[in-house]
Design a protein around this nucleic acid. Sequence first.
DNA 1: AACAATGTTCAGTC
DNA 2: GGACTGAACATTGT
Length: 274
Amino acid sequence: MPELPEVEAARSVLEGALDREIRSVDDSDEWVCRPHRPGEIAGALVGGRLTAAHRRGKTMWCETADRDGRPGPHLGIHLGMGGRIVVTTDADDHGRAGGDPRPAAGYTGPVPRKPEWNRFVVTFTDGGQLRLFDKRRLGRVRLEPDLGALGPDAEEIGREEFRTRVRRGHSAVKARLLDQSVLAGVGNLLADETLWQAGLSPSARADELDTATLDHLYDALAAALRSAIEHGGVHTGEVIGFRHADADCPRCGAPMVHGTVGGRSTWWCSKEQA
DNA sequence: AACAATGTTCAGTC
DNA sequence: GGACTGAACATTGT
């Protein structure tokens, strides 16, 4: 689930947790909170509050203030492969603490309680909580996250910079799009969607692409990003539902084919992206 | 049971 | 040292 569009939505949810006094913090998951020791993050936050929520690529961080309003450490949050942010208030929680925030479509029964999937929880003095809900446990929380290795955000990068950064190096163009130090925010599905929209082979060498092709790719990425944000996630991309065996390209009808590019499972149109 | 999964990181190889 | 590749990471779903 989490690529730039989903993370931006999560960042927006995070804003509901701002300016509320922190009563306690459960940072006992030593894997998710590594390299911090249990209690370390709690010690830095309890009594203070979160004051702003930011995002660059797939990384989010909150500014904090202590009980006297002085600036505190940044709280970094990464959703990993499937994490979600849940923010509750005392009034709207209805005892669902720990429930899966996204029951399967059409499921109308009780929301299953899986408290163990809440990997990091901040409880406010008003009784509400901020939770990192993550079944797969690849999400991450840490103080003072290092953003130095991230390239410019995929939503903000300019045409010129996109061109020079993507073209650098000899790897496949999809690998360049996925490299968070080239530009930050593109994940596996968004990369496949963007390349399909652009009619470009995922394994084309990035340094062999001409300027017109790179500009076309830039436009395709901007459009795919905007569409995903507007429609609620990268899974709403036009080709995403056709990333499976025996599927045909929804545009030209030629068979979709599969392979590994940039170390990730990749689907492309056998005719338009040859 | 074996394998893939919307992400990152580390070890190994050029 | 830099650039690149593939496996590993923890866990769930198919």
